[in-house]
Design a protein around this nucleic acid. Structure first.
Length: 272
DNA sequence: ACGAGCGCCTGTCGGC
DNA sequence: TGCCGACAGGCGCTCG
């Protein structure tokens, strides 16, 4: 589920707090518990629980689709994958059915990692770069200039959609926002990356940034699992709009499969 | 280098 | 009502 805007929204909620629970910056971890050991990618669950105890949260941020929680000694990284969530609560508040790991702070706040499908992962590492090294550039700062983006596309010969989903190419996009961005830029998901001229490449980069910014502004999208009141799902133009008229030309939206992922296009606006 | 297929998991929904 | 397949926001692996 979560792509860059949803991950950003969850990270921000850890800073601001949720409901009655205050944010986590400055809090010290009294203890942690892991219900589903595979949730911890590195180190093993027992070492994770032992090492995290006593560390204090010094900062919270996001890199790609990872939530980054800086601690006094290590960095805690959280990847929500398809169904993960981080929930803050007052201690003694009952855990949800899908809670896979919990962190209990010294002063009554608890943080639960909930994840129905068990794909999400936690890392406790001395250096986050050990995990981040393989990631491509961020999309919302100035780390990609239009000329460089065009060169990145031109130097590969790949289908556009799988390339944009490849986190080592650019970091943060997922299935929803790729479909929305390709529709906005009027590009077919199977178009070859090296077939785009500079103008079209610029249009694509602008569309990606626009859709991400608009979604962050709406607190991301909420589908199946509620997300901080996210409202962007009400602004989808193609994602899960199969059969509905394209807002640009009226042609019914079609669902195809690209790279094993459900893909939504306007067959008139997005010609191959 | 690239793309397809599959595995990891559980829940929901539509069709019969 | 019950069962069964399809599908879901992600990503790592193998294979050709």
């Amino acid at each position: 589920m979560p792509e860059l805007p949803e991950v950003q929204t969850v990270a921000q909620s850890l800073i601001d707090g949720q409901g009655l629970a205050k944010g986590i910056i400055g809090r010290t971890i009294a203890r942690a518990q892991v219900e589903w050991p595979k949730t911890v990618a590195d180190p093993d669950a027992a070492e994770f629980v032992r090492r995290i105890q006593g560390q204090t949260v010094t900062g919270v941020g996001r890199r790609a689709k990872y939530i980054r929680i800086d601690l006094s000694e290590d960095t805690l990284l959280v990847h929500l994958r398809m169904s993960g969530d981080l929930l803050l609560g007052e201690q003694e508040q009952p855990l949800g059915k899908f809670s896979r790991a919990q962190i209990y702070f010294e002063d009554g706040v608890q943080m639960s990692f909930d994840d129905a499908r068990k794909f999400g992962r936690l890392w406790l590492v001395a250096d986050p770069e050990s995990v981040f090294a393989v990631l491509g550039p961020e999309l919302l700062d100035d780390s990609i200039q239009p000329a460089a983006f065009h060169e990145m596309l031109a130097s590969r010969n790949r289908q556009l959609k799988p390339l944009l989903l490849d986190q080592s190419f650019i970091a943060g996009l997922g299935n929803i926002y790729v479909d929305e961005a390709l529709h906005a830029a009027q590009l077919h998901p199977l178009a070859a990356s090296n077939s785009l001229d500079r103008a079209k490449s610029d249009e694509l980069l602008a569309a990606i940034r626009q859709v991400l910014r608009d979604s962050i502004k709406a607190n991301g999208s909420s589908i199946d699992w509620a997300y901080r009141g996210g409202e962007f799902q009400n602004k989808f133009n193609v994602y899960q709009k199969t059969g509905e008229p394209c807002l640009r030309c009226g042609t019914p939206i079609e669902r195809i499969v690209v790279g094993q992922r459900g893909t939504h296009i306007c067959p008139s606006c997005q010609k191959l």
